[in-house]
Design a protein around this nucleic acid. Structure first.
Length: 117
DNA sequence: TTTGTGACGAAAT
DNA sequence: CATTTCGCCACAA
């Protein structure tokens, strides 16, 4: 099991319902600055059963530009979009309304309590 | 070993 | 806005 992936997944589990984070932010919070691409890669292997008996809300991770990473029209795109909307997050086209719901910057304040570095 | 490719990002143009 | 350029780096060919 890849150590870095686990750290990334654990960090993603800290994103509250109704909020989103970016690949880069997750990388930073996971202690892997500059490794946004690695986050994307890890999401490909997210355990569908979850981790530590908790789900890994991969759909709450989007680009720093505020857009969903998948190409509009793909099944993956439709899937993520639906999951976000189900949580009450508005998505226009491929753009998530960050202005309304914002990034999970507060994560930095509670991170040290939940993650062991 | 070199090269191309990513669920990326920031800055410059 | 959109495009380019460069940084990052695991992985496959």
């Amino acid at each position: 099991m890849n150590e870095q992936y686990v750290k990334i997944w654990k960090t993603i589990q800290l994103i509250p319902v109704g909020k989103v984070s970016s690949y880069g932010q997750i990388a930073d919070l996971a202690g892997l600055p500059g490794r946004a691409r690695l986050v994307g890669k890890s999401l490909k292997f997210v355990p569908s059963e979850g981790l530590d008996n908790k789900p890994v809300p991969w759909h709450r991770v989007i680009r720093s530009s505020g857009e969903i990473a998948f190409s509009p029209g793909s099944d993956e795109f439709a899937n993520q979009r639906a999951l976000l909307i189900d949580e009450g997050i508005t998505v226009k086209g491929k753009r998530v309304s960050i202005k309304e719901f914002g990034w999970v910057v507060d994560l930095e304040n509670i991170l040290f309590l939940l993650l062991d570095y």
